[in-house]
Amino acid sequence: MMELIGIPPQALFGQLMLGLINGSFYAMLSLGLAVIFGLLNVINFAHGAQYMLGAFVAWMLLNWLGIPYWGALVIAPILVAATGLVIERVFLRRLHDLDHLYGLLLTFGLALIFEGVMRSQFGAAGMPYGNPLPGGVNLGFMYLPWYRGWIIVASLAICLATWFVIERTKLGAYLRAATERPEIVQSFGIDVPRMITLTYAFGVGLAALAGVLAAPAYQVSPNMGSNLIIVVFAVVVIGGMGSIMGAIVTGFGLGVIEGLTKVFYPEASNTVIFVIMALVLMVRPAGLFGAAK
């Protein structure tokens, strides 16, 4: 087959797809971070650890209880979201009136605890999780493994559904309004404290869901989240905290840019996102889609 700009199409499309897959995880995680930050004013540093917990819970469900992937896809996010419920009620609520920094420190501490516990129980090496969708299809210009296709489709669906609920429904209108002026929304008779708890749990559940999706694609390991979350924070800075669609577009877009960099200039592939972050911070400190607060 023809070569494009001196690159074999298999390699180009292969990297493009890996980029889209990474972008799927960037998008799902930055979406949750943005929703949590919007309503709680908390930079949820535990987000990566909660993604990791999602993968571990899926692994435990499979190996200890025999619950397969498709069951874990539903159960694991609910279980991890329940821990989010407790974290918000017990800890974050008390920090609500304080500076951002306290929430960040608390969730950073929680992340260290979650990772430490998992490392001591399961070791640092990482454990495999069987692929629930083996095989694939040859598209002519590239080979598409089913599971990779599923990750992209599932995360797109999750992101768009979240966007729809937030931007187009009554529930989402409460959320957007409470992000701006929580006390006014509460004075309308809406139980804003409960909404805050549920929103945190939702964001955490979203991270866990991404973790379950990631389990068959990567190793299930205690540091899988901390490796990813640094890049996700850069994605959030680039996209800006203000916009849901912004988080989705930036997540997928940066995944693709990173993938293409691997093809054309592999030396820069680990740093390209941080270079973009630095440039964006200079030109638009509030991020590409963020409104200056």
Partner: peptide
């Protein structure tokens, strides 16, 4: 009472 209860 919490504000949302008063509102109701």
């Amino acid at each position: 009472m919490a504000p949302h209860k008063i509102a109701r």
